[in-house]
Design a binder for these strands. Structure first.
Lengths: 363, 363
DNA sequence: ACCCCCCTTGACAGCGCTGTCGAAAGCGTA
DNA sequence: TACGCTTTCGACAGCGCTGTCAAGGGGGGT
């Protein structure tokens, strides 16, 4: 027994001095080539102070010579920081979520972290929890939730309290627990939707209809609520909304139902894709836009300007939002005080799909 | 949820006996609670054989009680496998790349790996190398390259030989080095484009024009080449193509140039977005589709059916492709033999944007 | 009844890095 | 010349897990 132990420690796969040709070079190999200690190499790599320039150069040369690269897991284990941030995102190719996701991804790398992604195919709580678990198992330092969350309450519940998290895209809804680890960054949906509706009212429309998104998406709820609020404030009756699922197809179908109603002259669609579907339904119904029907969308997708009728829409600044959110998260990870809520303004892009209603004199 | 809350409040999550009651529970804490060795806990967690059911249950209970979760970096360090796969992707919200990316992401998780992402804003070699470096520094076990690569040669050059890699989306071009670590999975672009062009020829069009994508994207090259080949085979003259950048806007502009030419009756656009722009240009030029102009796209984006004229297009099966690619990569990581090239077929989706040319009798 | 072998479990040495702390060297001042 | 201070560097002990190998215990074959 002791014999075995002894012989083991004796053989102990010690690399012969000067020759470490096996496998990937390690930090100790670099140290040997540079003629310095392991720790000094570590200092150079992490750009810590207290290393004289000549030594630093020697180490850098050794690194280049061996083609050394750090072992992420080893570093994470020793330093208790993985340097990774997890992003939970919707598994949809929709313009909004995708653009926002890419913005976040780039902002995270720019902040010096790597990005681990888990996508959600359904909007169910179990799948959300599963995604969180997966990300936490990889050891992420923080979490970004991209896009809307259908479960404003369970969101906070499903998140462990000890991982800094920023929910990006939606403002908190309902009674938000004052849990300091859950922050929010979002586009000002309500203001944007309000602007859109007011624009239509200002043009002289007696009624503004709404083609809403699926109500398990917070942005859909917010845009709907802002539409209602704006109408109420203006003292205008509030017609029943039609609902879609963000897709052009659903916009087309909802559009057909909408256009079958009397007196529909202006429609605020909750996103551009549905507005596209609506435009198709209008064409089929021989309603010319904007002469007899005004349409306004939300997002400002790149195609918006190049539709048969260039689409008036509400633009969201995803890049700006992403940078703000990542800044917030990184501060939080560093243990600094941060703003709990960040709101990024939206802007109304006027194009050709909105005009005065056909019969002005009726007033 | 209530269960969790209850058990949490009951146990108070403080393992007393051990000294290290601070912070996250470790495997040794679980071992202590379960009354087994560290190694046995490891066995249970990794579902290794050789643990009797009773013991297994005891360990599982201890894990649940403590709320233990594995430390990814520690496991990666000890096992020499990070369990992560890196995906390099284009930083665009375009339908094709995004859909393909999401397919890959889900397929990777399904295969039991986590996903680290690096996006590319530009198509330059330095940025590509940077992305590879970042991913390798995090310790990924394999690499997926999502979408096209502009640099068929430098792609292989920029990749280290010791990391299994699958290029997803494009077939290899030019002389591919027989480097066993670089595999390919792709949609059969050439066949799809060929089908599209042949469809237009079969309808009786005397010429088929092409609205090509940017030539630094391999799919753009392939679709262009297939268009040329099909025309040549049919003995039809090959007009100069117009070029766009995949966007609706560029499609609109190229469409205007195209429609200014005489005798343009059929256009094969390299993607659906550009086809949308082209449709807009046609509307402005008072060319009705498909009566006086046939248009065909590529991708089959969800909106394609709901455009003013439902778009005939070539559908790509991204999900199927993703699953195949990940299977290929995982086998490669496991050191098994794999197919070096996987091709997934595309299909022509006939809708309303293609018809016979206006003047048939000219034939 | 005995032996052998397999099945289950545990002890222990790292994986490659960082954090702590102390040693050595350099430098100004008395 | 000697002293104390700062700057630069190295020794060493883990971080939390897995892989290897050995130990113990029970069942089947003879």
């Amino acid at each position: 027994m002791e014999k075995t132990a002894l012989s083991l420690s004796e053989t102990g796969r010690l690399p012969e001095p000067g020759a470490a040709s096996t496998g990937r070079p390690r930090m100790v190999d670099v140290a040997e080539v540079a003629g310095v200690s392991l720790k000094t190499v570590s200092r150079v790599i992490n750009e810590e102070p207290g290393v004289v320039d000549a030594t630093r150069e020697r180490v850098r040369a050794a690194i280049a010579q061996l083609g050394y690269r750090v072992n992420g897991p080893a570093r994470a284990l020793a330093s208790h920081r993985s340097g990774a941030i997890g992003i939970i995102t919707e598994a949809t190719a929709h313009f909004g979520p995708t653009t926002q996701f890419l913005g976040l991804e780039r902002a995270v790398w720019a902040a010096g972290y790597s990005v681990v992604v888990a996508s959600l195919k359904t909007r169910t709580a179990p799948e959300f929890s599963l995604a969180v678990d997966r990300l936490l198992d990889t050891g992420v330092d923080g979490l970004l939730i991209n896009g809307s969350n259908s479960r404003p309450v369970s969101l906070a519940q499903a998140l462990p309290a000890d991982v800094p998290t920023v929910s990006v895209g939606d403002p908190p809804t309902g009674n938000v627990p004052a849990d300091a680890n859950l922050l929010y960054a979002y586009n000002d949906q309500a203001a944007g939707a309000g602007q859109a509706v007011r624009h239509l009212l200002d043009l002289g429309h007696r009624a503004v209809h709404h083609l809403a998104g699926p109500l398990d998406w917070v942005p859909a709820q917010l845009r709907l609520a802002a539409w209602q609020r704006t109408l109420r404030t203006a003292g205008v009756p509030e017609p029943a909304p039609e609902y879609g699922d963000w897709s052009a197809q659903s916009g087309y179908e909802a559009g057909r139902r909408l256009l079958a109603r009397p007196d529909v002259t202006a429609v605020f669609a909750a996103n551009d894709q549905m507005a596209i579907g609506l435009l198709r339904a209008a064409a089929e119904a021989h309603r010319s836009v904007p002469a007899t029907l005004s349409v306004i969308g939300f997002d400002d997708i790149p195609e918006a300007s190049y539709l048969p009728v260039p689409l008036t829409t509400v633009r969201q600044e995803f890049k700006q939002l992403a940078v703000a959110a990542v800044g917030q998260l990184v501060s939080q990870i560093a243990g600094q005080e941060t703003t709990r809520l960040i709101s990024v303004p939206t802007t109304l892009r006027l194009r050709d799909s909105t005009a005065q209603p056909p019969s002005q004199e009726k007033k």
